[in-house]
């Protein structure tokens, strides 16, 4: 054993622990989703003012919600699985929320370019979504969609059966239009959150 041993060992330990700490945000996350959640909680980011069109065919943008908190989920109307859970959850929370209380709004955004006003309408009716409290909407153009996916950090991949795989996370946009929180995947707001 030489002095070099202690040195080398120390070096390897520092670099190794440092790299792992970097990759896990200080040993708190192991997934990219977790990392993003943590970074948003610390530094909320402004949501770009993308224009969307809702189930009634009206266009609107995020700026229209200033002063209100929005709960946002990302869906596609043909979804046979997760979106049903999300829809039910939003329906329960929406039906309980006071109609006059306009401090909280719900917004379901489709990431499927194959969706159109009719399919949005269909989805909205299925879960009793009513504008303006709960809009089921899609960005007006492909550019708006990619901006949104980028900002919210959403990865949508093909499920190999003509549909998509996504993780059904709920996002919170605060009064000043910033993406402020990403709820834990699997969190259901009707159960009392947040």
């Amino acid at each position: 054993m030489t002095r070099g041993f202690a040195l080398l060992l120390g070096l390897v330990l520092c670099v190794g622990v440092g790299a792992l700490a970097w990759a896990t945000e200080g040993f708190r996350v192991i997934t990219s989703q977790g990392a993003r959640q943590l970074s948003i909680a610390r530094h909320p980011i402004p949501v770009p003012n993308v224009r969307l069109v809702d189930q009634d065919g009206h266009t609107f943008s995020f700026a229209d919600y200033r002063g209100r908190t929005i709960l946002v989920d990302f869906i596609y109307t043909r979804c046979p699985r997760l979106c049903g859970v999300l829809g039910d959850d939003f329906r329960q929370a929406f039906s309980r929320s006071d109609a006059k209380n306009d401090r909280v709004a719900f917004l379901s955004i489709s990431f499927d370019r194959a969706d159109d006003r009719d399919t949005l309408r269909f989805y909205a009716d299925r879960y009793a979504a009513k504008t303006p409290g709960w809009r089921v909407a899609m960005p007006c153009d492909a550019h708006g969609l990619s901006t949104l996916l980028q900002t919210f950090g959403i990865t949508v991949i093909s499920d190999g059966m003509g549909g998509f795989v996504h993780d059904g996370t709920i996002y919170l946009v605060d009064e000043s239009g910033r993406l402020a929180r990403i709820l834990d995947p699997g969190t259901r707001i009707a159960a009392g959150h947040p």
């Binding site: 041993f5 080398l8 390897v12 670099v15 190794g16 792992l20 990759a23 896990t24 990219s32």
Partner: peptide, 26 residues
Amino acid sequence: FAESDWLGIPGLLLVVFATSFWMLPR
């Protein structure tokens, strides 16, 4: 290096770190 790498411990520790790092889902 051959002398400092006593019993191969630092080298293999590096292997453990590098492989764990790239196996993280993130």
